[in-house]
Design a protein around this nucleic acid. Sequence first.
DNA 1: CATCGGTCTCAGAGTTTCCTGAGAATCAGC
DNA 2: GCTGATTCTCAGGAAACTCTGAGACCGATG
Lengths: 235, 235
Amino acid sequence: MAARESVPSRKILVVDDEEYITDLLSTSLRFQGFEVATAGAGLEALSAVQSFGPDLIMLDVNMADIDGFEVCRRLRSDGDLTPVIFLTAKDTKEDMLSGFTKGGDDYMTKPFSLEEVVARIQAVLRRSGTAPADDATVHRYADLVMDDDTHRATRDGELVELSPTEWKLLRYLLMNAERVLSKSQILDHVWQYDFGGDASSVETYISYLRKKIDRVDPKLIQTVRGVGYTIRTGD
Amino acid sequence: MAARESVPSRKILVVDDEEYITDLLSTSLRFQGFEVATAGAGLEALSAVQSFGPDLIMLDVNMADIDGFEVCRRLRSDGDLTPVIFLTAKDTKEDMLSGFTKGGDDYMTKPFSLEEVVARIQAVLRRSGTAPADDATVHRYADLVMDDDTHRATRDGELVELSPTEWKLLRYLLMNAERVLSKSQILDHVWQYDFGGDASSVETYISYLRKKIDRVDPKLIQTVRGVGYTIRTGD
DNA sequence: CATCGGTCTCAGAGTTTCCTGAGAATCAGC
DNA sequence: GCTGATTCTCAGGAAACTCTGAGACCGATG
């Protein structure tokens, strides 16, 4: 199955001392069409920036040798302006984080969902001007439109109100329109990586979405029995 | 998210010996669409003016080698009239500044908020005649109008009294109308960069603003649950 | 047609997020 | 220094959201 192509492919450096996280992100981001390198510590990250020359860095804050903030500081003082998305534990003090959504930078709290990661990366790349031209803020399929910037979704011109989970799920379906996604794929991408529940949540949210966007014909959300779901116009 | 474009892009030289400040300003101003160069000392600044040819200089007053006033004096005696915004500590004597804020110049005390910086820069560029044509002094969305010049805000023709923070918040929302802004984005832009508080302040001020400008329909300030706030007319 | 696995929908409990009023602390102008 | 405006924090209550479990429904198969 081909990943959505970003041409030319953007390079992302993932830095975290939990191998679980670097694995998770590198696999997923490679699949999205990014070129990925990883580092497991702060100093290692600094040299990887030199050799790899990433377009964006996913940078864990809590690392043994030097922390993410310090890594970033050193980069900046070298005149390196590569945008950074910080990864932090949920309970990291707010005040440590404030100041990082300025410029092109951003942060995410663990645990996150892959769908959020991809959306944030696209947003940051777009802001920093290194995004490929085809990486628009508006996504469409048939008469379904989602705009990341204004966070508005419309079907047939009508505004549709979506909860956060509904939004992420629909965005994932839309970005993969016509491709059938299994429930576990959906769980892995849309829900946080530590979610313990099962596929029935997916079914429930698909049901919510149908009530909101598929009141009109043609129905866009299709069930492929025994396989999963997809967005497409045909029956 | 595309930066608001200023065409052609204006060049700003940021001079401060605190790296934190030059970083903060350069990242943020680049994001606003300015072209930015930095210098960490007075003499360095003088040569940067030559090589970079800025349209405006953000100039720290307290620097080790030669102070900001002296930098400015030397520029002027060379016949260089590039407008300057001085950056000073809060307790800098007013009378030291008088005499330097003539002729298109201005000053700001640290700590400042990014929203103020942008507003001041626009004001100075406008006065000095180098502002892009589309950089107006009056900002509108629906029947909401804010005039930087007269510092008046009206909703539906009615004058609205705003405190300084309310003004900055509303201006930031207005300049980004229809775009959803997260609470941390808002904190980082509207509040001073050393503010230690959390997002609940944003909620409180949103509440104040609603009482002042959203007594009439349609409500302009919308909550996007789990994401942030935005100004828009739609429901 | 009967059966069975898979899917859909709904209600409700538990959780999170948001709103707002009240009060303390700080600041600015007289 | 007094006074009123402004800023910020806190906490209770309201509203929205999430998830689960149970039962209805559907489609394929024999």
